[in-house]
Design a protein around this nucleic acid. Structure first.
Length: 881
DNA sequence: CACTCCCGCCACGGC
DNA sequence: GCCGTGGCGGGAGTG
């Protein structure tokens, strides 16, 4: 494990930075004003993928030598400063006056006798030294969306010097940023800047977790507050959801050393920050008063609250709030109550809440794409696939686990474990999403979804589409209210919402996403919540790594993988718990965790499962997971005993857990054809229709069955996407042509280069032909390839293609480019044809299909060269076994 | 006076 | 013992 961790760590930076395409140079924040990064949306990725736009007024981050920045800054400031730089240590806590936004001379004047008076006059006021301002300065130094290739490391000492503050203050900032995954600690005194690429995902995760943890609690408090009945410490324990101090999202570094690091109350500032954010995300009003937050946060862990503790908590919350304000996530407001005006903070970033359905879908997409994109990455060989720490199953929960381990187990703990496992999964997903998009370079993340300056007025939880029932519908789309744009897109000339019914399309009307492709992987099978056990199952490694978090408490149940029928095997009670947790994640936004049963109960649940799938895969973040998956597919169900062993001993062993699931799923009814997801807060404009029409088997697939989620076509409408290169792949999996183990699964779509596509034109990627709008020939329904409905390349595709005309609503007047994906001239597949072959078979790119061997070779080599971590990520590439 | 929150002491844990 | 971290709360600045 330790070894593993080290590896991860070494790659950690890469993982986070490599895949983020666009860099937006932050503009220098205006003093005293929150930085509104959302304004940076304008930047498009395509603009300059490689060279990030850097702010003029911002110090160049590039030469990241320890002193480079400092020197640069000093030089820029003035000659005198150079000299003074040497002395900086002497005056170190130089007031952090506006270094970045105002003349620096001010701070250094102190030394200058002649200017002393002036200094006095100009002595920075308290406000000028505020943590919020300091944070703005800090943020101004780094791009919000660093290039994927740009590794930005932050030296605390250096930053402290530059900003003229004590390191202690930098810790305050960094801890909060770390809680949101904007930075990651890579070594002592060294942090890696990730920017906001993951912010939306992180927030989503926090929201999800927050709902589980604080949904009721917050409501309770708010009520109390309103009623004024609430008194400090009066709250009944039972009304409050159990929660502990453990880090919900533990972004702590994976390295083993962290284990010890968990002292210090697990870095409470980070945890507190996450929790604080969660409160906003969960709050219906999006407004949280500090005292309320303090009460909630304090009481979580303490039975009684003393005033001093409360005050301290509030102080810390101010610190956090200042940083969050600088990030543009919250703003200070005043709420009036009976007692009068009361300071509070309102969430202004990441508008809206995340629509769980979105996240679910994304996950699904991730899953789908995962294999493909990984393959692609390998194929390109350009990027090193490193995984984020979060990919390590362990990491995410590391802190948690540590902490947990120290704590006595209790029912509460169990629940926590659930959360923990969920978090792990979520985190993995995030990471995965990052990967997915980036490799393809598709996504620019244009719309800083994270920052919505204009919060949606809507209800906090737009659950609309996420209703399970609708999902269950055969044609899920129609049942759900699509986003306006989406619906438009969906409609055909006749105005019928047709796109959907049988058509395999993905619509991305608006901007932000892009990934897709690929078939389902073994992971999919997991629909139920990922419990610790699940996680553990995923891979031995995962377990090894994770164990802490997940296993810890769960140990009782799961640390050891239960044998086969995991699902069944789970104790009812536990299972229930899981369900609760899970459900929310997957489809419904549960107000009450306990109430999201539908998903499971729904017959169409196949769908549900599909949705869930992804969570777990990645969650496992364990590097081994992918491999495990592969293996799993090849292997028969493992015997329980085996599983355990694998957990413990053989990390590489495939996890059997999936199998059960798959089994269950196998029986599931057909999934809905599509999922229509409205864009909601989280993904700001991520709308799409996902074809749900997979063969039952596909969806539920067991690990062995490689699912084929086929997304024959993707429609990307337009302008919004202008800058976004497109994406998607029709994943026509062809069980027929199983690829040798080494080969990566890929979808045809993956093979073509998106770069050329980067146009404003919408692109249709179909399995069949490539048509430019002008030329739009006959929608090619792939004559050659009749797709079997079961496969999803159903006729629908053809029809849909044909149906979609340039002028059709779908096209919305935008030129459409149809890309023909090379498909292996395969014969139509029948559901039966789908076999549990290696999953690789499922993800073939045209190229791979054409020349599996070649692919395999390439991949294989890459794989070999790749770091172990990377390798692990590769789904099918390596040898089984 | 209440609210903010800067400041830095000092504990903790690793090396 | 030093150093990196970061909890913590005194008390100053602000309105």
């Amino acid at each position: 494990m330790s070894h593993y961790n080290y590896l991860c760590k070494s790659n950690e930076i890469d993982c986070w930075t490599v895949f983020f395409p666009v860099v937006m140079a932050p503009k220098t924040p205006i003093k005293n004003e929150p930085v509104d990064l959302s304004k940076q949306k304008g930047c498009t990725p395509e603009r300059n993928p490689i060279t990030p736009v850097k702010l003029i007024d911002r110090p160049q981050p590039d030469p990241w030598t320890p002193t480079a920045n400092l020197k640069m800054l000093v030089s820029a400031a003035s000659p005198d400063m150079r000299d003074r730089e040497k002395k900086k240590e002497l005056f170190r806590p130089i007031e952090n006056s506006e270094q970045s936004d105002t003349p620096d001379s001010l701070q250094y004047d102190i030394v200058d006798d002649s200017t002393v008076d002036e200094f006095e006059k100009q002595r920075p006021s308290r406000k000028q030294k505020s943590l919020g301002l300091l944070c703005q300065k800090f943020l101004a130094r780094y791009p919000s969306y660093p290039l994927s290739t740009e590794k930005t490391t932050i030296s605390l000492d250096e930053v402290a010097s530059i900003l003229g503050v004590e390191r202690r203050r930098i810790y305050d900032i960094v801890n909060v940023l770390e809680s949101l995954h904007l930075v990651t600690r890579v070594a002592k005194n060294q942090y890696c800047w990730h920017g906001r690429h993951n912010l939306s995902q992180t927030l989503k995760t926090l929201q999800e977790v927050g709902e589980l943890q604080y949904g009721e609690l917050l409501t309770f408090f708010q009520h109390k507050e309103q009623d004024l009945e609430y008194k400090f410490g009066e709250r009944k324990k039972e009304t409050i959801p159990d929660s502990q101090d453990r880090p919900l999202l533990d972004f702590s570094e994976p390295d083993c050393t962290s284990a010890s690091a968990n002292s210090r109350k697990d870095k409470s500032l980070r945890i507190m920050s996450q929790k604080f954010v969660m409160l906003f995300l969960v709050s219906k009003t999006k407004t949280v008063t500090l005292d309320m937050a303090a009460k909630i946060l304090i009481e979580e862990t303490q039975e009684t609250v003393d005033h001093s503790k409360f005050k301290t908590k509030v102080r810390r919350l101010y610190d956090i709030a200042n940083v969050l304000t600088s990030l543009g996530l919250i703003k200070k407001v005043f709420v009036t109550e009976e007692r009068g005006r009361k300071p509070a903070f309102r969430w202004i970033g990441f508008s809206g809440l995340l629509n769980l359905s979105n996240s679910v879908i994304i996950r699904q997409l991730i899953i789908l794409c995962k294999g493909t994109y990984q393959g692609r990455i390998c194929a390109t060989g350009k990027q090193r696939f490193t995984r984020h720490a979060s990919f390590n199953g362990t990491q995410p929960c590391e802190g948690t686990r540590r902490k947990v381990s120290s704590e006595p187990s209790s029912p509460r703990q169990e629940r926590q474990d659930e959360y923990c496992s969920k978090m792990i999964n979520l985190e993995a997903v995030f990471s995965a999403s990052c990967f997915i998009t980036s490799p393809l370079s598709l996504l620019p993340v244009p719309g800083d979804s994270d920052f919505c300056v204009n919060p949606l007025p809507q209800a906090v939880f737009p659950v609309v589409q996420s209703d399970v029932p609708s999902l269950s519908l055969p044609n899920g789309i129609s049942s759900q209210a699509p986003h306006p744009s989406t619906s438009a897109a969906v409609k055909t000339e006749n105005g019928q919402p047709t796109l959907l019914p049988n058509q395999p399309f993905l619509c991305f009307p608006s901007s932000s996403l892009f990934m897709l492709c690929g078939g389902l992987q073994e992971n999919n099978s997991r629909e139920t919540l990922p419990t610790t056990g699940d996680v553990g199952n995923r891979s031995a490694e995962a377990q090894a790594a994770i164990p802490p978090a997940v296993c810890q408490k769960r140990t009782s149940h799961k640390c050891a993988w239960p044998p086969a029928p995991v699902d069944d095997e789970e104790p009812a009670a536990k299972k229930q718990t899981m369900e609760q947790n899970d459900v929310p994640l997957s489809l419904v936004v549960p107000k009450k965790p306990s109430e999201s049963p539908k998903a499971e109960s729904t017959p169409g649940s196949g769908y549900t499962s599909a949705v869930h799938l992804e969570d777990f895969h990645l969650d496992f973040a364990s590097p081994a997971a992918p491999e495990a998956a592969n293996k799993g597919s090849t292997k028969p169900l493992d015997s329980p005993g085996q599983e355990k062993q694998s957990q413990i001993k053989d990390p590489d062993e495939p996890s059997p857990g999936k199998e059960h699931i798959s089994k269950e799923n196998a029986d599931q009814p057909v999934l809905p054809q599509y999922l229509c997801v409205q864009p909601t807060a989280g993904l700001n404009s991520f709308n799409f229709l996902l074809s749900a029409s997979q063969a039952p088997g596909a969806i539920s697939l067991a690990a062995s069955q490689l699912p084929s989620l086929s997304v024959p076509c993707v429609m990307v409408p337009s302008v919004a996407l202008a800058s976004i290169p497109l994406v998607c792949s029709p994943a026509v999996t062809s069980p027929l042509s199983p690829v040798p183990d080494g080969s990566f699964s890929t979808t045809a779509s993956m093979n073509f280069t998106m770069s050329s596509l980067a146009s404003t034109m919408p692109v249709f990627i179909g399995t069949t032909a490539v048509v430019t709008p002008n030329v739009l020939p006959v929608p090619s329904v792939d004559p050659q390839q009749p797709v079997h409905p079961a496969l999803h390349l159903s006729p629908v595709l053809a029809s849909s293609c044909s149906a979609i005309k340039l002028d059709s609503p779908v096209c919305m007047g935008h030129p459409v480019t149809l890309l023909k994906l090379q498909q292996p001239s395969s014969t139509p597949l029948t559901p039966k044809s789908i076999r549990p072959a290696h999953h690789e078979a499922f993800f073939k790119t045209p190229g791979s299909l054409g020349d599996p061997v070649a692919w395999k070779k390439t991949e294989g080599n890459q794989t070999r060269n790749a770091s172990s971590v990377q390798r692990r990520l590769e789904i099918s590439s390596t040898s089984p076994d």
